[in-house]
Design a protein around this nucleic acid. Structure first.
Length: 260
DNA sequence: CCGCATGTTTGCGG
DNA sequence: CCCGCAAACATGCG
């Protein structure tokens, strides 16, 4: 559930279910999820309520009426679940019972997710060393960032301190639509290529978020459903190839994304 | 059983 | 200091 578009979806989900509801019971799960003492989470959340939400990259920030923000990082498999029934999900790591009878759980099977408490969004951003939220960047800002970036373009786009929000799936997607080989050096990309990447980043994030919120499937020309070695490229007659970059499976079309 | 999976952090080597 | 890579974390799925 974890890159920028999925977190954007989780934000809408929380907004539409859980704002302005008084929390009357708090249940906590695995120790490792909690980045402050568990008793602090219980104390802060009890009798509190969420008043608004915001997002920086892959982090969802829930502003509380009192005591600052609850911050959620979803890891690879985290998601929120709002429900009315009695059974608690097997992998619920935090469950809030609201006064109106609704319940909100943070579900996280692999336990790679994290929960934080903070008083200030700006402090949190600095502490986590987060770059600008990807979908807030304008073209000029995007181009400016690349004046000081070296190394493979895939690694650069994955770097949360450079740009916050892109992950393995959508970095591949952006490079695919831009016709740029994932091993290309960031410092060697032309102005045209950078502009193309910016345009595609915006489009990929918007398109995926839209498909998430509207429950529709991705366009035929997207790489994502073809992340399999040897699959037909949805744009040309080539075959999809997989390589490892920074330990992550990287799918691309050697015909569309020529190595330079 | 094996390999792989949307993420982050840490440690090592060049 | 920068870059790249591997491993570790924990669980589910094909």
């Amino acid at each position: 559930m974890p890159e920028l578009p999925e977190v954007a979806y989780q934000k809408i989900y929380v907004d539409s279910t859980s704002l302005h509801q008084k929390i009357v019971k708090v249940d906590l799960g695995a120790e490792k999820i909690f980045q402050s003492p568990k008793k602090d989470f219980k104390e802060v959340l009890m009798n509190n309520e969420f008043v608004s939400t915001s997002q920086i990259g892959k982090y969802l920030l829930l502003e509380m009426k009192e005591h600052g923000f609850l911050v959620i990082h979803f890891g690879m498999t985290g998601k929120m679940d709002y429900f009315q029934h009695d059974e608690i999900h097997k992998h619920a790591q935090l469950t809030l019972n609201f006064e109106n009878g609704g319940k909100l759980s943070f579900i996280c099977p692999r336990k790679f997710g994290k929960l934080f408490l903070t008083d200030s969004i700006e402090d949190f951003r600095k502490e986590k060393n987060l770059g600008p939220h990807a979908s807030d960047l304008n073209k000029v800002e995007f181009l400016e960032l690349f004046k000081r970036k070296k190394g493979s373009i895939k690694t650069a786009l994955m770097d949360q301190s450079f740009i916050a929000g892109l992950g393995n799936l959508y970095v591949d997607e952006v490079l695919y639509h831009s016709g740029i080989h994932p091993k290309s050096k960031a410092e060697k990309l032309s102005e045209d290529e950078l502009e193309k990447m910016y345009k595609n980043m915006v489009n990929v994030l918007e398109t995926v978020t839209k498909s998430k919120t509207e429950g529709t499937s991705l366009p035929e020309t997207f790489l994502r459903p073809h992340r399999t070695e040897g699959d037909d490229c949805p744009k040309c007659s080539g075959k999809i190839k997989m390589i490892k970059i920074g330990g992550r499976s990287t799918y691309f079309c050697p015909a569309c994304q020529e190595e330079k």
